[in-house]
Design a binder for these strands. Structure first.
Length: 878
DNA sequence: CGTCACACGC
DNA sequence: GACGTACGTGTGACGG
């Protein structure tokens, strides 16, 4: 195998890591964020590049040979923060534990050492990867040398070989020197030519290739001002060129063979990780210390295997029970068994015992108190076996989600470790994953499931206390938990679909798709895969030479907004858009939905994820029934396949009108907004009147469209950039729109400011029902992260309260239906809309009761409004 | 098998 | 001056 040398720019990566990560400190109070970030980067590099040789180069002294040329070199650079510099010695310890070579030299910068080692290795035929955050190093790129620049964070990188560099800058590597010489670099205090930025510099180099070329043909430079600037600052440009040129002939301490690297010793590295407090990394490198910690359960329990004659002791409440499923989809998954932990001990019931024991089943169905982990899953999976589960008083999964929706993982093992009860092994450690998934022998399984039950039992009081401490017990007991029961009914009930009508739509689509595909190939004069953005990009932009509007990191962007701009440039474009639209309908909605139809019921049984979104909304999977097309007529037709499950029934759709803006009006107490809703005005027209300062009659269609986009932006918390994208205007204009909006609604402005202030103080924001979302980045020193957190602070109470309201309505509506013995039932929730199926006889009654319940779900300072429609398919209920 | 680009809904 | 910008889910392509 070829030799591969990885060179890391130590200071640059440490600096990047320091600013990319929050100022973490370990339990000894020592800051470790830069070291931690560096380490994650290092592990990723080792994994991705598999180097045979490695070196990390550091800057050393303050003075470098560059200061002889230019005394103010790096003159503007701020002193390295002490929080970072104190981490540098740790970095050296870290590298020593990895046995990775390090070099630094007086008078030379890390860049120069890297350049020198790189050229040396290149001459020996090595492949070289340079890891840095400093674009200057791009000048070293060659056939053998690839430069990887950190992108966002520090583990994501953009890789530049000669081609990629050319694609990005249209420059050869050595021209990077000229580029920098012209544009300068404020962080190193390199002057360049004033008034010349990246754009101008690239233009000049495209024309004249080098700085020398520019000055040789100065009279050919377009623009009088630019010509003058260039002439006036010739010496600056030439000196800058020297400064940014990397010295590839620096003195170095090591010979190439001393850089050789095989692999690290997990235990040696593990010791250092342990000292630094990098617990998660310990597991990742698989050191023995971590192995011991992660693969061993510290729950020491005796699990008793239950027999068909289930003993009474096992069926005593209160109990923690765990229904163990091997598959994600609880509609179709078998049940592997059940763990029970109570005062009498820990028990395991096999599937045979569960299905065979009347005593066990009666106990499950009784009101005796049970604590579970993921109640909805337990209810639904048991229901498919014809079993009922009652008496559930607590759901640890739900509790964990409500306590912190920001945690991405609520697997029992994670919840347990976060709350410092005993360690539970992960599902993956027992079953393996993917294709390797296997169910262990019953003893192992029983032990594992029993441990889960024990931990669940311990978690219950802790989680209950945490909910209470956050004043979230109401949210849990009266909103989310009752909702879980309703959702379980909805999911189990399923939605009927007319497979035949889907199939015939699919056949139509396929015919049209074949036709459109042929037309596209005809127009392109070559057959290619239209679904491949890569191939499509090559056809459009290389072969047909259409103008490139936007690039993605892997090539040309061919997204709809780009294609729409090209629509009048070539007839192929509209065909491609059509092909995409129809292809999506066919693959996702026709084929996808057909695949989801249950063989047992002929219906579609989605699952609503109630413990996932950051805002409190539900999501829907397998299939997602919350994104069935509606906007475009061709797609909307899919809804014709959704039908009531019984003859002479109809579907009723009830949707909140502008629920989020009404919530905003309420929580911001903005008088104008409240007034508008009280009067029943068209809110987008109203906003247009305010923002554009015109009378109702003078609001043009375009004004209303723009106002609508602003309202949309406010509700979804998008940035000026986001708004500019959706309106096709500049960011500045979008910013002005938002500003004018906030001036028009001063109450909203006050709310936005106060909610951000509140978030800074508390570290979280809340909804009207006291749902919480933590915003750890609200005080971030990173502009991006902080801005994002600020927009989230403004948006989450709005969207989250909307979610609270419809959840409340679902509960009340369900109570009402039950109370009246109605046969009608709610099937789906789509964020601000409920889909109900009902016998025709009940429709008239529902049409009064449903809006009434929904509109009264929460008393706000503005009325809530619900629109109704019904029909024999979902399409007709519009 | 994981990641990317894309597209659908709110 | 650049950064990289509502929340979700599912699909096909692609590369390791």
């Amino acid at each position: 195998m070829n030799n591969r040398l990885v060179l890391i720019d130590g200071n640059s990566i440490a600096y990047r890591a320091f600013f990319a990560l929050p100022l973490l400190s370990n339990d000894k109070g020592v800051y470790t964020n830069a070291v931690y970030g560096f380490t994650t980067m290092l592990l990723k590099v080792l994994e991705n590049h598999n180097p045979s040789h490695m070196l990390v180069a550091f800057d050393k002294g303050k003075k470098t040979f560059r200061h002889e040329t230019y005394a103010s070199y790096k003159g503007t650079r701020q002193k390295t923060p002490s929080e970072l510099s104190e981490q540098l010695p740790m970095l050296h310890d870290l590298l020593a534990s990895f046995d990775i070579a390090v070099d630094q030299q007086d008078l030379y910068e890390a860049d120069d050492l890297i350049g020198t080692y790189a050229r040396l290795a290149e001459a020996e035929g090595y492949d070289i990867d340079i890891i840095t955050g400093d674009k200057d190093l791009l000048q070293l790129v060659s056939e053998k040398i690839t430069v990887h620049l950190t992108r966002k964070g520090i583990t994501e990188m953009d890789s530049y070989d000669i081609e990629a560099l050319y694609e990005r800058y249209a420059l050869q590597p050595e021209q990077i020197i000229d580029l920098k010489a012209l544009m300068g670099d404020s962080s190193d205090n390199i002057p360049g030519v004033p008034g010349v930025g990246e754009k101008t510099a690239l233009k000049l180099l495209a024309q004249f290739s080098t700085v020398a070329g520019v000055y040789d043909h100065l009279d050919e430079v377009s623009g009088k001002k630019l010509k003058e600037k260039l002439a006036d600052h010739r010496s600056d440009a030439e000196m800058s060129r020297k400064l940014v040129t990397i010295n590839t002939d620096a003195p170095i301490n090591k010979a190439l063979k001393e850089l050789s690297y095989a692999s690290f010793e997990p235990n040696k590295v593990g010791e250092v990780f342990k000292e630094f407090g990098f617990k998660s990394l310990l597991e990742r490198i698989g050191s023995e210390e971590a192995e011991e910690e992660s693969s061993q359960s510290d729950i020491d329990v005796e699990v008793e295997l239950l027999t068909a004659d289930v003993k009474k002791a096992a069926l005593q409440s209160p109990a923690a029970i765990v229904i163990e499923l091997p598959q994600e989809n609880y509609h179709t998954s078998p049940i592997l068994g059940m763990g029970i932990a109570n005062d009498n001990g820990v028990f395991f019931a096999s599937p045979e015992v569960i299905e065979g024991s009347k005593e066990l089943q009666d106990w499950l169905a009784s009101d005796d108190e049970k604590v579970v982990y993921h109640a909805k899953k337990a209810w639904v999976s048991l229901k498919w076996k014809g079993l009922s589960l009652n008496g559930v008083t607590f759901d640890a999964y739900m509790a964990s989600y409500l306590i912190n929706p920001g945690e991405t993982n609520h697997e029992l093992s994670d919840v347990a470790s976060r709350h410092a009860v005993g360690k539970v092994r992960t599902d993956e450690s027992i079953y393996g994953k993917g294709a390797k998934f296997t169910v262990p022998p019953v003893d192992t399984l029983a032990q594992f499931v029993g441990e889960k039950a024990v931990v669940l039992r311990e978690l219950h009081p802790l989680l209950a206390k945490e909910l209470k401490a956050r004043d979230m017990d109401m949210l849990f007991e009266e909103l989310e938990f009752p909702l879980a029961a309703i959702l379980s009914q909805m999911e189990f009930q399923g939605v009927d679909v007319n497979a035949e009508s889907l199939k015939s739509m699919g056949q139509e689509l396929e015919k049209t798709l074949a036709k459109v595909e042929a037309e596209i190939h005809e127009l392109a004069d070559v057959e290619f895969n239209i679904n491949s953005p890569k191939q499509l990009g090559e056809i459009l932009f290389d072969k047909l030479n259409l103008p490139v509007m936007k690039k993605t990191k892997t090539g040309y962007s061919t997204s709809a907004d780009v294609l729409e701009k090209l629509e009048d440039k070539h007839p192929i474009i509209e065909k491609i858009l059509l092909y995409r639209q129809l292809g999506k309908l066919n693959s996702t909605y026709i084929e996808g939905l057909l695949k989801s139809i249950s063989d047992k019921t002929g219906k579609i049984h989605t699952r609503f994820n109630q413990a996932l979104t950051q805002t409190g909304r539900l999501s829907s999977i397998d299939p997602n029934l919350q994104n069935i097309p509606i906007r475009l007529e061709e797609g909307r037709k899919i809804r014709k396949a959704f039908v009531p499950s019984e003859p002479d029934w109809v579907l009723l759709s009830a949707d909140y009108s502008q629920i989020e803006l009404r919530v905003l009006a309420h929580i911001s107490e903005d008088e104008k907004l409240i007034e508008a809703f009280k009067k029943g005005e068209d809110i987008h027209t109203q906003t247009a009147m305010e923002v554009f300062k015109v009378e109702a009659d003078d609001v043009t269609g375009n004004m209303r469209r723009q106002a609508k986009a602003v309202n949309f932006g406010i509700v979804y918390g998008i940035s000026d950039y986001g708004l500019s994208q959706s309106l096709g205007i500049t960011r500045k204009e979008a910013g002005q729109f938002i500003e004018r909006y906030l001036e028009s609604y001063p109450g909203v402005k006050r709310y936005m400011e106060s909610v951000v202030e509140q978030a800074r103080k508390d570290g979280y924001v809340t909804t009207l029902m006291n749902r919480r979302r933590y915003l750890p980045d609200i005080n971030s020193r990173q502009f991006n992260q902080r801005s994002f957190a600020e927009r989230t602070a403004m948006n989450t109470p709005i969207q989250g309260t909307g979610a609270d309201i419809i959840k409340q309505a679902m509960i009340r509506l369900n109570d009402e239906l039950k109370k009246k013995g109605a046969r009608a039932r709610v099937l789906l929730q789509v964020h601000d809309e409920l889909i109900i199926e009902t016998p025709k006889e009940e429709l008239a009654w529902l049409e009064t009761i449903v809006p009434s319940v929904m509109e009264q779900a929460m008393a706000l300072d503005v009325p809530l409004k619900v629109d109704l429609s019904s029909g024999s398919t979902w399409y007709d209920a519009k």
